[in-house]
Every structure is written in structure tokens, then in C-alpha cells.
Amino acid sequence: MTKSELIEILSQKQSQLAYKDVELAVKTMLDHMGTTLANGERIEIRGFGSFSLHYRPPRIGRNPKTGDSVELAAKYVPHFKPGKELRERVNESMERVEIQPG
């Protein structure tokens, strides 16, 4: 499912809202989530999961073309921990449906 397919489903289910409103709502939510993480704050959605930042210490990497070593600064990466309901629903679906390719 892509973002536009998600918008399509939501606008069918929220028929009192114009497609454009749903589209803007989805973009606003994703932007809000991205900004929250970029500010170093957590996202906690009960039954879905939580997003937080994980610290990656500085390390020496290599330029794969030249083999030269390069110092890579410490950074943060986004991390998602699925919530209980999502974990259970997905795990229970294993016997019912295959994972679709793509």
C-alpha cells in the first residue's frame, strides 16, 4: 500500500471530507511525525507503536571506491517499536495470508 492508496481508502471511508482534505490531512500527519523526530522527540501511538531516535556513535568508515578511511560523525537514526496490538494482529495473520511481494 502506498501513500496515495492510503489516501484513497481514507477518503472513501470519510465521504464527508473532500479528497483534497484527506490528502492534506495525511501529509500534515506525516510531516508532524517527521518534525517531531527531527526535534529529537518521541512518537507514541497506543496499539500501533512508538518511534524514537537511536544514537550511533562516531566511527571510521571507508570510501568504497578509493578505500580511503573517513571519519563519520555520530548521528541519530529513527527507530520503530511495534505496539502490542500491531504485533499480535500481524503475527496472527501469518497462517492466513502470504506476504505480498513488492
Partner: peptide
Amino acid sequence: MFFEEIRNALENGQQVKLSGFG
């Protein structure tokens, strides 16, 4: 509904791709 539809897709074996986010 936004989070519920993502859960729905996942429990139907569909991966979810939200461009710009992940």
C-alpha cells in the same frame, strides 16, 4: 483511521510505503 488502515494493510500481508517517511 490513518493508523488503523496501516495496521489493516499489514495484517493482510501488504507492506506499506509512505514516501518521504518510510
